[in-house]
Amino acid sequence: MLNRRLIRIRAMQALYAYEQSRKANLLLAEDLIKENFAPDLNSMEVQDKPKLKGLTDLSIKVLHEELSIHETTEDFEAPKAVTQAVKEAKILFNNRNKADFDQMSLRTLREADKVFVVYLKLLNLYLALADLSLADRKFEGKSRLADNKLLKALQENSEFEILSLKAEAQWNEEKDFVKSLYNTVLRENERYNEYCSKINHTLDEEIALLKYMVKNVFLKNEVSVNYFERFHLYFSEDRETLRAMVAHTFQNYDEEDGLEIAQSNEEWKERKEFLGKLFKQSIQRENELNEYILPKLKNWEYERVADADKILMRMALIEFMEFPSIPIKVTINEIIEIAKTYSTPKSGVFMNGVLDTLSKELVRSGEIRKSGRGMLDNK
């Protein structure tokens, strides 16, 4: 299952997507203003185009000022037409943002759950390939994938079958892909041919083949990777997690109890709650969080700070204040590592300075209260 670092990456990516949609919504709001002041081609009166353009430009300027995080110093009374146009544009902007927020909130959690669907598809892929191996004359008189003891146990696991049906994780509708993977990849694989050349296998040998296949065939070979990248948006980030989940399933095989299939549990519910809170509160409390962040950007203009850095700083503040069991240093270190990978080369140093200062101030003010494990290394 996804660890906290992957959850943070998932939240950051979802927040980045929301930020891009918000920029697109601003363009739509500007387009609405332009439409409001577009020349009326059906009017019998002469259209004052310079005046209409002036009203358009002024309205867009006012819109940006009202949406800016900075206080405006200008104090003037805009024409009623401008005030009305800006009001309508803001309504459109806010409604579109709310719709995107609601949609992305649901999608972010659904995509997190999809790691279990991909996991089930990977297990079913073994069975689909095993079925093809039965009719392969190349291996007559030799072992085949279908002979693997653990795959037989998987095939007979009723719990796995029910989970697969519910998740629609079988390969009945994707037989061409399975055939391609078998014929062009597995059938010619040296390790698989070596396995098939031996009739009897120890349990360790059976497990070793399956672990080899998930790592080198399912999650590394181009044919398979291309499929899963289309199927799952976060496949690249989840690849190692999926490998571990599949390997763990086979490694823990027991002669009496059979295979234990990974499922959503209380720990996973907590991880999803962590994800949902990071995403939602980073947006809902943006103005409040910016009040903490802005004073710390003494040598940086907010508009020039990378979007990913802004997002990660807000996420860190939510972790500081809303998750008492997570130590401050853990949050800072994790956010810095993500920034190094997903933002600019200087983001790590920049983030470290801002977050270290913020955390110390918020601890002194009592706005950060850690408990249990969260109190470790917070001196």
Rank of each mutant, 00 (worst) to 15 (best):
Glu65Pro: 03
Ile60Asn: 00
Asp48Phe: 08
Pro50Ser: 07
Ala81Asp: 10
Ile69Lys: 08
Leu55Arg: 04
Thr83Met: 11
Ser43Leu: 05
Glu65Ile: 10
Glu45Arg: 06
Glu77Val: 15
Thr56Lys: 03
Gln84Ser: 13
Thr73Gly: 03
Ala78Thr: 06
Pro39Gln: 10
Asn42Pro: 00
Asp40Gln: 08
Thr56Gln: 13
Leu63Glu: 00
Leu67Asn: 11
Leu55Ile: 02
Asn42Asp: 12
Ala78His: 07
Pro39Ile: 07
Val82Thr: 10
Ala81His: 01
Leu55Trp: 07
Ser68Phe: 03
Leu67Val: 05
Lys61Thr: 13
Asp75Cys: 05
Ala38Asn: 10
Glu45Thr: 06
Glu65Ser: 13
Ile60Phe: 07
Glu77Ser: 13
Leu63Tyr: 05
Leu58Asn: 08
Ala81Leu: 06
Pro39Trp: 04
Val82Gln: 01
Leu67Glu: 14
Asp40Leu: 14
Leu52Asp: 06
Ala85Val: 03
Thr73Ala: 03
Ile69Cys: 06
Lys51Ala: 13
Glu71Lys: 11
Thr83Asp: 11
Ala85Asp: 02
Asn42Leu: 14
Leu58Tyr: 01
Phe76Arg: 11
Ala85Gly: 08
Leu63Pro: 00
Val82Tyr: 00
Thr83Arg: 13
Leu52Trp: 04
Val46Lys: 12
Val62Phe: 01
Glu65Cys: 07
Pro50Val: 01
Asp75Leu: 12
Met44Ile: 13
Phe76Met: 04
Glu77Met: 14
Ala38Ser: 15
Ser43Asp: 12
Ile69Trp: 05
Leu55Glu: 10
Thr73Asp: 07
Thr72Asp: 15
Glu77Gln: 15
Ala85Lys: 04
Leu67Lys: 09
Asp75Ser: 06
Pro79Glu: 15
Glu45His: 03
Glu74Val: 07
Lys51His: 11
Thr72Gly: 12
Val62Leu: 12
Glu45Trp: 06
Thr73Glu: 13
Met44Ala: 14
Asp57Cys: 00
Ile69Phe: 07
Ser68Trp: 05
Thr83Glu: 15
Asp75Phe: 07
Pro50Tyr: 07
